[in-house]
């Protein structure tokens, strides 16, 4: 079943996937155990003439065992999950590139800070649905929304975070493989929700520079803009 996971191309995705696998193995084992025992009991203790049922109200030792054992497993899972969560969401590391992603029925507004690396200045670049990032760099994404709640979902990077109107939420990721990946909206946002699709372009360092050169205003232009202001 786990073979259906989309290919992972982010640094922390592997840690998420290994937890996913671990829980999958544990729950599958428990499920099989319970089912085997249940089916065995159903077969062995089916009604037979002259064989009365055991008169028993339970067993405290067993009761303690099957309280404590699941509790221990769950505590371990909780701690392991907590550590990974803290690293992904608890702290945001020093990032190399920043970009704003704003949901708007039914598009993703992608806002690049431009050469001055500051938002809200004249050299900002806004694109629709196309997010270009360099490979092997930590990307800071500032999520927001112009209308309703959307959810920024990068299945191949194991990234999902709701984008809310009225607040800015910071998340980060680092892509490890160049290519084009889909951006999806995971929170119902209206009749066009199903089609709120974008693309994430993970570019090699050279490709990213080329793309910047083609799209971003050159530093000289930026200086002109400043003077004009």
């Amino acid at each position: 079943m786990m073979g259906w996971l989309p290919e992972n191309v982010s640094t922390f995705g592997e840690r998420i996937d290994s937890l996913f696998y671990l829980i999958y193995y544990i729950t599958t084992a428990v499920f099989l155990l319970v089912m085997v025992v249940m089916v065995a009991f159903l077969f062995l203790y089916r009604r037979r003439e002259g064989r009365p049922a055991l008169y028993s109200h339970g067993n405290n030792t067993l009761e303690v065992i099957w309280t404590v054992v699941p509790a221990i497993i769950l505590v371990i899972l909780t701690i392991m999950s907590g550590v990974v969560w803290q690293d992904i969401r608890g702290v945001i590391p020093e990032t190399d590139v920043q970009v704003k992603v704003i949901g708007k029925q039914f598009n993703w507004r992608i806002i690049y800070p431009g050469p001055d690396n500051e938002f809200g200045t004249k050299d900002d670049l806004e694109k629709e649905n196309d997010l270009h990032v360099p490979i092997n760099k930590k990307i800071l994404v500032l999520l927001g929304s112009d209308d309703v709640i959307h959810s920024f979902f990068l299945p191949h990077l194991r990234v999902k975070q709701d984008a809310l109107p009225g607040r800015e939420i910071a998340i980060w990721f680092e892509a490890t493989k160049a290519g084009t990946y889909e951006i999806a909206c995971a929170e119902l946002c209206g009749f066009g929700h199903y089609n709120m699709r974008g693309h994430l372009f993970v570019d090699s360092a050279e490709d990213y520079q080329d793309w910047q050169r083609e799209n971003w205003p050159a530093a000289a232009e930026v200086a002109d803009m400043r003077e004009a202001r």
Binding site: F20, I23, S151, K160, A186
Partner: peptide
């Protein structure tokens, strides 16, 4: 009950939430 454990785990829920 068992499938609930997947989404209780915060990191795994990042991926499977809203799926």
């Amino acid at each position: 009950g068992l499938s609930g454990i997947f989404m209780a785990s915060l990191p795994v829920d990042i991926f499977i939430h809203d799926t």
